[in-house]
Simulated assay, not measured.
Amino acid sequence: MILGKCPYCDGNVISKKINVKGKNIKLYSCENAKKEYDESEQYVFTADSTCRFRVYSNAFLRWNKRSFSENEMKNLLNNEQIIVRLHGKAGTKEYYKYVITDLEYGVSVLWDEEIEERA
């Protein structure tokens, strides 16, 4: 499924289901960011890969956000930033932060930007 245009190379960002360490997750990646296993069993970008933009749906798991949805990814690609709801370690406190695209990490949280509490 095509979610939008890559912010770095203007290729299509596609969604596909993958299995990582026994967990089914979604990978949102530029069609030009191709990876494969090399002879040492490392998962590396191919020689013909011209982009590195990739986001895994579990990118915010450490902040107790179970999944980054296809809809959130579409909004991020269209608007260049979105607001996501994250949670503290105990899962009791919730807070909102801006998220932007990042060429190296896929997405980055803008920790220094404050967002007023949402109802």
Rank of each mutant, 00 (worst) to 15 (best):
N78F: 04
V20Y: 12
K74E: 10
E36G: 08
A59F: 00
S67H: 04
K89Q: 09
E39M: 10
T92D: 08
C6K: 01
A33M: 02
M73A: 04
Y8Q: 14
Y105I: 07
H87E: 12
S15H: 09
N12Q: 15
N12F: 05
L3A: 07
T50G: 10
G88E: 08
A47I: 05
D112Y: 08
K26V: 02
E80A: 09
E104W: 06
D38T: 01
P7S: 08
G91W: 00
K16Q: 09
S15A: 09
N32Y: 04
K23C: 05
I100N: 04
Y98G: 03
A90G: 13
Q81D: 05
R52T: 09
E116F: 09
R85W: 06
D48P: 03
E80Q: 11
P7T: 13
V84E: 14
Y96L: 03
Y8V: 06
I25W: 11
N24K: 15
E36V: 10
V55Y: 02
N12T: 03
S49H: 06
K34Q: 07
Y96T: 00
E117M: 05
Y95L: 15
G88W: 06
C51Q: 03
K26Y: 11
N64S: 11
A47H: 06
V20D: 06
A119I: 07
K23H: 09
I18T: 03
L103F: 05
V107W: 01
D112L: 09
L27H: 03
